[in-house]
């Protein structure tokens, strides 16, 4: 289990290496990228801030839940600070004996990150305006995943 908040660029290939295991038959990862638009506005960059002490507790709890529920090994790395378009904001890695559990666990972890991890995102637009996002409820999360 690995949970990390970092200001450094996320390098998925290096993180994948840390997941390698002769006991695993499947690996699934998720990357959240910074895109250049949101709700009709041109986004230049994002700023992420975190409550690190609490994020460690909740991040590890989410991983622990996923590992119990799906019998997987799992990891989360979340970036904070100023991110540019195309940067990776969050990475999730999961291994298991079989592929099905890795897909389900990866989805469970990212859905819970979005709702429970104490991290906040501010968008900076091309016209110079800035806005703290106040809802992550884009409709993508599977409601079943939010009830352990």
């Amino acid at each position: 289990m690995l949970f990390r908040i970092t200001e450094k660029i996320i390098e998925p290939e290096k993180l994948r290496q840390t997941m390698l295991s002769s006991r695993a038959g499947a690996y699934c990862s998720y990357e959240g990228w910074v895109r250049d638009h949101n709700e009709g506005k041109d986004v230049n960059s994002l700023h992420y801030s975190a409550y690190e002490e609490l994020a460690q507790t909740i991040g590890c709890k989410i991983l622990d839940e996923a590992e119990s529920k799906f019998q997987v090994e799992s990891a989360i790395v979340h970036r904070v600070g100023d991110l540019s378009v195309a940067d990776i904001a969050v990475w999730v890695g999961v291994t298991a004996h079989h592929r099905g559990d890795t897909f389900l666990a990866c989805r469970y972890i990212i859905d819970n990150i979005k709702h429970r991890l104490p991290v906040w995102k501010k968008e900076v637009y091309s016209n110079g305006d800035e806005c703290w996002i106040e809802s992550n409820h884009c409709g993508c999360s599977d409601p079943k995943n939010l009830q352990f």
Binding site: V119, W132, N136
Partner: peptide, 10 residues
């Protein structure tokens, strides 16, 4: 004490 706005990570 910390008062926490809705989380928006990911």
């Amino acid at each position: 004490v910390a008062f926490l706005p809705p989380m928006t990570g990911g």
